[in-house]
Design a protein around this nucleic acid. Structure first.
Lengths: 201, 201
DNA sequence: TCGCTACTATGACAGCTGTCATAGCGGCAT
DNA sequence: ATGCCGCTATGACAGCTGTCATAGTAGCGA
């Protein structure tokens, strides 16, 4: 509920993101997106006059926004916020999905980067924006947990890099080993960069 | 010289890897591979009776072997081998390429994973093999530098994960920032896991 | 010369892609 | 009811894809 009440336009963007993260941008057809979204094919042109490029870009932007929102949720769910706890939560979202539903999909932003970084400049921009939008709340969360301001963004970039790379390996291996490994190995480093929290917290 | 003396078959595999890392698997056509390799189109079927799937898989395997070989070279080039030095060399290979030739291509194994992990099982296997073949020499180098045996492979996975993820971000941003960041941030962690080398080395 | 083998050339095939043009529907305001 | 507008339906288009069938060439051994 709630999900299916969205308009066809939003459903198509969502479906595009889902199909892209499964099969890549090039292998995802527009007719397929419409069918997956239970949206009429005749509306594709109406909602996305910019063609596939526009649809893909919006799907990538949606994915970036989604990832950013998740960061806030993870922070809210942590009883004692620590950098390693946040990273573990980000990783766990994926291990949970992979264990529950199989290794079908990866990150749509990664897929867009691989398939369009060279061919479609606007999509490459959309992917860069998505990464930036995702990095920002992570860096802010780190500063809130006591990481010095000039170290927060680099650490956030490291977290997202390690997560994206581990996602690739996990999907290739059909095993979440790489994901759990990076969470375990990177955790202590992340916490060591944070000031000790004041006892009164 | 030497490069162009290879047979057409090997040239096609090499060209396939190059084109795949630029445009992805799906956007890379077989006619395009033959043309790029200056190989006759009529030979495609003869050398690769398994079709595109076989060609892609061999390109991925080639990339994995190439990455593995590079590790040995990096180790040999380091005057004082340290984990952070090895990782810095792995990263620098990419920053050098990006600074010199632009952000045209990424990692072919990553591209194959994104495009084929769900659709083509044999290619997913090839990608997993490539990652494994790449991880092994890294882990062995780490043990040689004093990293405990049970920590070497996880650390190698972390290094490759961070590198692959940073590659994606760098390509999307057309900026090697993410690459240099992960090298700088991960270096101390890697060295801290190695025993102090004996003074006599 | 014959035959065999390795390799190449060429063209055709069905299938799919994104794009576009045209037409039609339904509802709402005037 | 009239006209407009958001939305949809349908079909066609050229272009490309991987695959395949057929034929042809060069070279080498007997």
């Amino acid at each position: 509920m709630g999900v299916s009440e969205r308009g066809p336009r939003e459903r198509m963007v969502f479906s595009a993101a889902q199909l892209i993260r499964r099969d890549g941008v090039m292998a995802t057809g527009m007719r397929e997106v419409a069918a997956h979204a239970n949206a009429p094919r005749g509306s594709l042109r109406h909602y996305f006059p910019g063609g596939k490029e526009q649809l893909v870009n919006e799907a990538v932007a949606w994915a970036g926004q989604y990832a950013a929102r998740r960061v806030a949720r993870f922070m809210a769910a942590l009883s004692e916020p620590t950098p390693s706890g946040l990273f573990a939560a980000m990783v766990q979202q994926w291990t949970d999905e992979y264990r529950a539903s199989g290794f079908e999909g990866g990150c749509p932003v990664a897929a867009a980067t691989v398939d369009c970084a060279q061919s479609t400049d606007s999509t490459r921009d959309a992917a860069a924006d998505a990464f930036a939008r995702w990095t920002r709340p992570v860096a802010e969360a780190l500063t809130d947990m006591g990481v010095p301001a000039d170290e927060a963004e680099p650490l956030a970039t490291l977290m997202i890099s390690a997560l994206e790379g581990a996602l690739l390996i996990a999907r290739a291996e059909r095993d979440d080993r790489a994901l759990t490994v990076v969470a375990r190995e990177l955790g202590p480093l992340l916490d060591s960069r944070a000031r000790q929290p004041s006892p009164g917290d």
